[in-house]
């Protein structure tokens, strides 16, 4: 349930933005979730529903997943992260700290661990919509 901690972060970020923008009510929250972190979307949705305060009472949470893409800094090879190729322990380690990918994943072309996580790392708040 480490998704819960991430959901708390999203709620906290939205609350701060709503406060700053003078929103009385939040209507829609768009979140992007990178596949590298392998977040359980059902748990994330459940956490959002449980963490909603009055300001969020009619808010819709839209979650969009994004493929994780790597680019090797040595040979420039690009490739897509595939969690199915990992054993359970490795997948779980990357789930908690996505940069642990550099420990276990190597460039499929040259074998280097020196690659960039181009996109799809973790959770991002894309946008919020509300009424003033």
């Amino acid at each position: 349930m480490h998704e819960w901690a991430l959901a708390e972060a999203v709620i906290s970020a939205v609350s701060q933005i709503a406060e700053k923008e003078g929103l009385q009510e939040v209507k829609e929250v768009k979140v992007k979730v990178g596949e590298l972190q392998q977040i359980e979307l059902d748990i994330l949705r459940f956490a959002f529903s449980q963490l909603k305060t009055a300001k969020f009472k009619s808010a819709t949470f839209i979650i969009e997943t994004k493929k994780a893409e790597f680019r090797c800094r040595v040979c420039q090879k690009k490739w897509i992260f595939d969690a199915r190729k990992l054993d359970t322990e490795t997948a779980e380690a990357i789930h908690f700290v996505p940069e642990i990918a550099h420990t276990y994943i190597k460039c499929p072309n040259c074998g280097s661990p020196d690659f960039e996580i181009v996109k799809g790392r973790g959770i991002w708040l894309e946008s919020i919509r509300g009424v003033k």
């Binding site: 380690a93 990357i94 908690f96 700290v97 996505p98 940069e99 642990i100 550099h102 420990t103 276990y104 661990p113 020196d114 996580i117 790392r121 973790g122």
Partner: peptide, 21 residues
């Protein structure tokens, strides 16, 4: 706990991300 006995080569932006996470 997550990297075990393996090497974890990280560049600066990765270090920041681990810290924030």
């Amino acid at each position: 706990y997550y990297s075990g006995n393996y090497a974890t080569p990280l560049r600066g932006a990765d270090v920041s991300n681990v810290l924030i996470e």
